[in-house]
Design a protein around this nucleic acid. Sequence first.
DNA 1: GAGCTTTGACCTGCC
DNA 2: TGGCAGGTCAAAGCT
Length: 387
Amino acid sequence: MAEHESFDALQVEKLKPNEQEQEEDEEGDEDEDEDEEGKRLGEIHLGELQNSAPESRETQLETLAVPSTLELSENDQCAGFQVNSTSQSIDGAQLQEQLGVSHQEILAIVTHQDSQMQTQSPVQLAVYPTPLSELSPTSVTQSIQTQTQSPLQLTVYPTPLSELSPTSVTQSISSAPSPILLEQKLPPEKVNTLCTPEVDKQNSSDHKFISSVPLVKTSASDGYNWRKYGQKQVKSPQGSRSYYRCTYSECYAKKIECCDHSGYVTEIVYKSQHTHEPPQKSNCTKESKLALSAECVRNSVTEHPCRTFNDSEVSTSSKERIQETPSIPERKRQSPSDSDGNGDVKIKEEHGDGDEPEPKRRVKKSNLEHASTSHIVFVWGWGWGWV
DNA sequence: GAGCTTTGACCTGCC
DNA sequence: TGGCAGGTCAAAGCT
């Protein structure tokens, strides 16, 4: 709850949504202010995270100290504090100067921290990686700082960077360092196709979101490869629901992303269990994936015999991809209502023990027999303050 | 050509 | 029984 309060407090520091258009209009005049404000926000956020970190550590298994979603209200997105992602008002040199750190420095730091984290981090990292290229240097450095301060690993579910102002990126990432690192492992083509184009598109057009298109590309978000097989407009909560299934042929894990009207992910529901580790590289051959899959099944069974978490479980069994996995071991447990309404992302994992009734679905397909194994053993989610 | 996304239609369960 | 909503299919299009 502390973190929740922290982000509430942070929100106060942020630009008020209604002022954002004005802010945007005044963007040209506020470069200096932005710089100051960006630093200030970063400090505030970092400080708050630090304050909340002890509590998080005390309840490592239950508390997630981070707003995993970098979601912003649509208003936030058009805040005048668009420095990095837009690159329109400030060129690279200016940006670097303002941020006081070069991209190369960041990379160096990140690399170093990455290796440190892999060896030191006592808790599994659950991350939906965010492309490094889309993060501001400020956010990178702050995330690293936070990382070193708390062993608690965080689950971060990034909102498409295209929708984020640098402020928001900084704020959210600052408590979830590794997405940056992780994304570096992602194949370039993935990163590009998944994130960058939208950023460019939206930055150039100054649009904040595309309501009909899932802005979070899940295939890169949690280390697994998901294929979207359906999308539905739902009324409650109002928005859309995207249905993903794992691309592994023998994996029947599914994921449902609930988005609000503006395309922000408000809830993620995992169903069934991955029978494989998340792919390490996109250039993995299918053969290698299949081979890996068999190995992973063994690992997950032997290492996590009592848990049925899919993503997280598999991920914790992976020593090579610790950071890229979406494991959520110390997630803040909340009642669903806790995370409703304020833009919190609920993540549920639904696994079957065989007793739960199968949800509505067509009887046709063969995956019925596989899917029948799932449902709702664990339903857990977390929430955090809206940023 | 493979893989993915989009999207309308279909199926099923609930009220 | 009909309407509604959720979940899925599958064709079309895109990369």
